[in-house]
Amino acid sequence: MSEHQTAVQEQAAPAKTVLFEIQRQDTPESAPYMESFEVPYKANMNVISALMEIRRNPVNKNGEKTTPINWDMNCLEEVCGACSMVINGRPRQSCTALVDQLTQPIKLEPMRTFPVVRDLVVDREGMFDSLKKIKAWIPIDGTYDLGEGPRMPERKRQWAYELSKCMTCGVCLEACPNVNDQTNFMGPFAISQVRLFNTHPTGAQNKDERLSALMTDGGLGECGNSQNCVVACPKGIPLTTSIAAMNRATTVQMFKNFFGSDHMVD
């Protein structure tokens, strides 16, 4: 009985739609343009489910048939960082951008601090190059079994775990005023990763190499302390604390490099 009533009510109400304004770009070189879409509303929908709906029926607001929108996605639970885009002016993940919490029209743009591949798809390869540059890994390979590493104090592990939540999504780069086409700044995420790997007892064996990498072109020096990154980070990583910590570590490293030291890794 009650089920039947609900069905009647749904029919009686006018079909609710969600308005999207999406910045599109056909090729990496072509000019961007805006296209609007009206998507049928569904309870609890997120930006990705709306994009999927547009893909199912690629017709814009004017009723013209168009190409489906290109976007990146993978995990759908805000741990991979692939679906990052600028939603209503703020960079964030589209999987956790719930339509009910957004003001309409919902404006979607690619993160333009990166090269745009197509529509909302950007090329974040530069971030992975930065991770290679700063040696964001712990070398455990040897010609023989190196055995267990030193034990990490639990309380240290707890805050280091927060830093390890970085998913290379690129939001902090999009938010940073100093990451742009006029600078080579690798962005806040890489600086925090140096702190993470230098904190690890085994990782600390290459501490000086990572710090020296931060002291080269595009490294730590290019931070201007606007502190947008820590506001923007979807994982709540204390990026500005990491930056200040690495500022302190490189201050010491700078003198060690210049004068020479027997304490490069301790």
Partner: peptide, 16 residues
Amino acid sequence: SKNNVQRYGTFRNWMF
């Protein structure tokens, strides 16, 4: 620098 106080109107970004 590419200022973006419209996007992030935080105290520190204004100071920047």
